Amino acid sequence: SGVNQQQLQQLMDMGFTREHAMEALLNTSTMEQATEYLLTHP
């Protein structure tokens, strides 16, 4: 699906929903950016 499943699982383990985590990974290129994205786009 174009996203790193390991990163997706890590974000879900942090408490984010699958949909939200996927959106973040699709819009960013690193785990750090994805986390930042999730925190700034709740």
Rank of each mutant, 00 (worst) to 15 (best):
T30E: 02
Q9R: 14
E19Q: 12
L8E: 01
A34D: 01
Q9F: 11
D13I: 11
E23N: 09
L11W: 01
H20Y: 11
T30Q: 02
G2H: 13
Q9E: 09
H41A: 07
E19T: 11
E32G: 05
E23D: 07
L38A: 07
L11Q: 00
H20T: 08
Q10E: 08
F16W: 09
G15L: 03
E36L: 10
S1G: 13
H41Q: 10
Q7M: 13
A34E: 01
D13Q: 14
D13M: 14
A34K: 00
M12Q: 06
A21N: 00
A21H: 00
L25Y: 04
A21Y: 00
L11S: 00
T35S: 05
G2K: 11
V3K: 05
D13A: 15
Q6V: 12
T17C: 12
L11T: 00
D13Y: 10
E23F: 15
E32S: 06
S1A: 14
S1M: 12
Y37W: 15
E19M: 10
Q5C: 07
Q33D: 12
D13W: 11
H20D: 08
P42M: 15
A21D: 00
L38R: 01
L39H: 14
T35Q: 15
Q6G: 10
L26E: 08
N4M: 10
T40A: 13
Q9H: 10
P42Q: 15
Q7T: 06
A34S: 01
Q6P: 06
S29W: 09
E36Y: 08
L25E: 00
Q7S: 09
L8H: 03
T35G: 04
L8P: 00
L39T: 11
A21V: 15
L25M: 06
E23C: 09
S1K: 12
L38S: 02
Q33N: 04
E36V: 06
T17Y: 07
S1L: 11
H20R: 15
L11D: 00
R18V: 06
L8Y: 03
G2W: 13
T35H: 15
T35M: 15
E36M: 09
L11I: 05
A21P: 00
L8G: 00
T28K: 03
R18E: 06
H41Y: 13
T28F: 09
S1W: 05
N27P: 01
G15H: 03
F16K: 01
M31D: 02
V3Q: 06
N4S: 11
G15D: 02
S1T: 12
E19V: 10
L26W: 07
Q6W: 14
E36D: 08
G2C: 10
M22T: 14
E23P: 01
T28W: 04
V3N: 06
T28S: 07
R18W: 08
T35F: 15
M31P: 04
G15V: 01
R18L: 07
E32H: 05
Q7H: 15
Y37V: 06
Q10K: 11
N4D: 11
Q10Y: 13
L25R: 00
L26I: 10
L38V: 04
V3C: 06
T17M: 12
A21M: 01
N27M: 14
T28G: 03
T40Y: 08
N27R: 13
G15A: 03
L26T: 08
N27I: 09
H41L: 14
F16Q: 01
E32T: 06
Q6Y: 13
M31G: 02
T40F: 08
A34T: 01
S1P: 12
T35E: 12
Q6R: 12
A24H: 01
R18Y: 08
M22H: 07
A21E: 00
N4T: 08
Q5K: 14
L26A: 10
L26F: 08
M12Y: 03
Q7V: 07
E36C: 15
L11G: 00
V3R: 05
E23H: 11
M31N: 02
L39D: 09
D13K: 13
V3T: 08
T28I: 02
A34M: 02
Q7L: 10
Q6N: 11
N27H: 11
H41E: 09
L8D: 00
L39Y: 14
T35K: 15
Q9S: 09
L26G: 05
N4F: 13
G15I: 00
L26M: 13
Q9T: 08
H41I: 10
T35Y: 15
L11A: 01
T40D: 10
S1Q: 14
E23Y: 15
L38W: 05
T40G: 14
T30L: 02
L11P: 00
Q6D: 12
T17K: 14
M12H: 03
E19W: 15
E36K: 07
Y37G: 04
M14E: 03
N27S: 08
N4K: 09
H20K: 13
M31W: 13
T35N: 05
P42T: 14
E19A: 13
L39W: 11
G15E: 02
Q5P: 14
A21G: 04
H20G: 06
Q6L: 13
A34V: 02
Q10V: 12
N27E: 05
E19Y: 14
V3E: 06
A34L: 04
F16C: 02
T30V: 02
R18D: 03
L11H: 00
E23M: 12
E19G: 10
Q10L: 13
T40Q: 10
S1I: 13
M31L: 15
T28Y: 06
M12F: 03
H20E: 07
A24M: 01
T28V: 04
M31C: 05
Q6M: 13
T28N: 05
T17W: 07
R18N: 04
S29A: 12
P42C: 13
A21I: 08
E36W: 09
N27G: 04
M31T: 03
T17D: 10
H41G: 11
T35W: 15
P42F: 15
T35V: 15
L8V: 07
L8N: 00
E23G: 05
T40V: 06
F16D: 00
Q9D: 08
N4V: 09
G15N: 04
T40C: 14
S29V: 08
D13V: 09
E19D: 13
A34G: 01
L39R: 11
M12S: 03
N4R: 09
P42H: 15
R18Q: 07
L26N: 07
L39F: 14
L25N: 00
T28M: 03
M22F: 09
G15P: 01
T30W: 02
Q9M: 12
T17P: 14
T17A: 15
N27Q: 08
D13T: 10
T30K: 02
L38F: 04
V3M: 08
Q33L: 06
A34Y: 02
E36G: 04
L38D: 03
T35A: 10
E32V: 05
M22N: 05
P42N: 14
L26S: 07
V3W: 12
A21L: 02
V3G: 06
Y37M: 05
M31S: 02
A24Q: 01
L26C: 10
L39I: 08
E19S: 11
L11F: 05
H41C: 08
M22L: 12
Q33Y: 04
E32N: 05
L39V: 07
L38Q: 03
E36I: 08
L38H: 03
Q5I: 13
P42S: 15
T28D: 01
F16I: 04
D13H: 11
Q9Y: 10
E36N: 07
P42W: 15
G15F: 03
H41D: 09
R18T: 05
A24C: 02
Y37F: 05
G15Q: 03
M22S: 07
M31H: 04
Q5T: 11
Q10H: 09
T35D: 02
M14Y: 07
M22Q: 07
S29Y: 10
E36R: 08
L38N: 02
L38C: 06
Q5A: 14
Q33W: 03
E19P: 09
E19F: 13
S1D: 12
M12K: 02
T35L: 15
L39A: 14
F16T: 03
Q7W: 15
M14R: 07
V3A: 07
T30I: 02
E32I: 05
Y37S: 05
V3I: 12
H20C: 11
M12N: 02
A21S: 11
L8T: 03
Q6T: 11
E23I: 11
Q6F: 13
A24G: 04
T35P: 04
Q10S: 08
M22I: 14
F16M: 02
L25F: 04
E23A: 09
Q7R: 08
E36P: 05
L25S: 02
T17L: 14
G2Q: 14
T28A: 04
Y37T: 05
M22V: 11
T30R: 02
M12R: 04
E23T: 11
H41M: 15
L38I: 06
L8K: 01
Q6H: 12
M22A: 08
M22D: 02
A24T: 01
E32L: 06
A24Y: 01
L26Q: 09
